[in-house]
């Protein structure tokens, strides 16, 4: 009984070590305020930070396990295990504004004040994410266990041990 139990558990552990989830899983979120993400040590993938609007330069603060870095969009970061905190840092975009100014013109009949509309380009900087920033997490591979080789070895040992025990029990039985 002990032999067959060890054999069955060994095969289960062996399969846990050998198999991984290979389906491509993506998850897109719009970054409006701080978001946090905890990635288990079994996942492999990448994190894409996308700003769709072409006239906007956006910066995002990425904190990974306490290490802070400021990333200019668009960018792709490898998704390594640990705690991630992503927050909008700064965005800058140029804006066409129209302004009405008073201009005094000297004419032959005297000075006249006229209003003029002028177009000018203004650089707007803000801390808000006015233009949507997309955080696209894609996981390409997910192992079932943290240390596949260790679990495989354990499973192999248990399988062989169980098989030997089973044969031994069978041989001893009259």
């Amino acid at each position: 009984m002990k032999g067959s139990l060890a054999f069955a558990l060994g095969i289960a552990l062996l399969s846990l070590g050998l198999v991984s989830i290979n389906a491509h899983v993506t998850n897109t979120q719009v970054l409006s305020k701080e978001m946090s993400l905890s990635v288990p040590p079994t996942a492999y993938g990448e994190l894409e930070l996308i700003e769709n609007a072409t006239n906007v330069t956006a910066y995002v603060e990425v904190v990974h396990n306490g290490e802070k870095s400021i990333v200019r969009l668009d960018s792709v970061i490898p998704l390594t295990p640990g705690e991630w905190v992503i927050a909008p840092y700064q965005e800058a975009y140029s804006m066409n504004v129209t302004r009405v100014i008073n201009v005094t013109e000297s004419l032959s009949c005297g000075n006249v004040t006229v209003q003029k509309v002028i177009h000018e380009e203004k650089l707007v900087e803000s801390r808000n994410a006015t233009y949507p920033i997309y955080v696209k997490m894609s996981v390409t591979k997910m192992n079932l266990v943290e240390d596949p080789s260790l679990v495989e070895a354990l499973g192999l040992v248990l399988t062989v041990l169980g098989l030997a025990l089973m044969l031994f029990e069978r041989a001893r039985r009259p």
């Binding site: 067959s4 558990l9 289960a12 399969s15 846990l16 989830i21 996981v139 997910m142 079932l144």
Partner: peptide
């Protein structure tokens, strides 16, 4: 009896893969 534990214990262990699968699908 003989095949009960041998069937149940590994099946319980292996069927927990749904924990990983759902965790991945749910965006961790």
């Amino acid at each position: 009896r003989e095949p009960t534990l041998e069937l149940v214990l590994p099946t319980m262990l292996v069927s927990n893969v749904f924990l990983s699968a759902f965790y991945e699908r749910g965006g961790f």
